[in-house]
Simulated assay, not measured.
Amino acid sequence: MKPTIITVLTLAFAVLFGSCNDQSDSPIYGNWRLEKYNCIATSSYGLTQVDKNENYVLQLDNTGVFCFTTDCNTISGNYEMGKTTLNFSNVSFTEKACEYMLVEESIKSNLPSIKSYEIKDDLSLILKDEDGHILIELIKL
């Protein structure tokens, strides 16, 4: 019996899409809104609350690529994660001159220091440095 073209195409699509990582593979994948961050203008690990009118979003896809959009610029690059480890690399950003850039400068400064993550109640993403200090807190969109 010869396979029909529809059977062959169906099998090809099943193999193609079945081999890709699904967005549901890890709860870390998706869009996260910045809530608090470690501000570079202060010398402590106290977190600064983001104004509710601001919309800073971190997108983590299932291929190891991230994009962090701010009011003015975009920060992007790669990330690698384990069960609780998280490392950002190849970080690049646009350099538009903006009126208020402290938040995005803090994010750019914090990303290379992030070494682990924690997800609370599937709604909060906590990013920490190697000593366990919280650098960034986000909520699921």
Results as ranks from 00 to 15, higher is better:
M1D: 11
K2G: 07
K2C: 01
P3Q: 09
P3N: 08
I6N: 09
V8L: 15
L9E: 02
L9W: 04
T10F: 13
L11H: 02
A14Q: 06
V15Q: 05
L16Y: 13
F17K: 05
F17G: 12
G18Y: 05
G18H: 11
N21Q: 14
Q23D: 12
S24Q: 14
S26C: 07
P27E: 15
I28E: 03
Y29E: 09
N31C: 07
W32E: 13
E35F: 01
K36D: 11
N38E: 04
N38V: 01
I40C: 00
S43H: 11
S44R: 09
Y45L: 07
L47H: 00
Q49F: 02
Q49Y: 04
K52G: 08
K52D: 15
N53K: 15
N53E: 13
N53Q: 14
E54C: 06
E54Y: 08
N55E: 13
L58F: 09
L58Y: 03
Q59Y: 10
L60R: 06
N62R: 14
N62V: 02
T63Q: 12
T63C: 04
G64E: 10
V65C: 01
F66G: 05
F68A: 11
T70H: 05
T70L: 09
D71P: 00
D71R: 05
D71C: 04
D71S: 12
D71H: 03
C72V: 11
C72W: 02
N73K: 08
I75C: 10
S76V: 03
G77R: 07
G77P: 02
N78S: 13
Y79M: 09
E80M: 11
M81S: 13
M81F: 09
M81H: 13
G82I: 04
T84E: 13
T85M: 02
T85D: 12
L86E: 01
L86I: 14
L86R: 00
L86A: 05
F88S: 09
N90F: 05
S92Q: 13
S92P: 00
F93V: 01
F93G: 11
E95H: 08
E95M: 11
E95I: 02
E95L: 08
K96Y: 02
E99N: 08
E99G: 09
L102M: 06
V103E: 03
I107N: 05
S109Y: 10
N110W: 00
L111F: 11
L111P: 01
P112K: 08
P112W: 02
P112H: 04
P112A: 06
S113D: 05
I114N: 03
I114D: 01
K115S: 15
K115L: 04
K115W: 00
S116M: 04
E118S: 12
E118D: 08
I119P: 00
D122G: 02
D122K: 12
L123D: 08
S124N: 06
S124C: 00
L125V: 06
L125A: 09
I126M: 04
I126C: 04
L127V: 03
K128F: 00
D129V: 01
G132T: 07
G132Y: 05
G132A: 08
H133E: 09
H133R: 06
I134V: 15
L135T: 01
I136T: 09
I136R: 02
I139V: 12
I139M: 04
K140A: 07
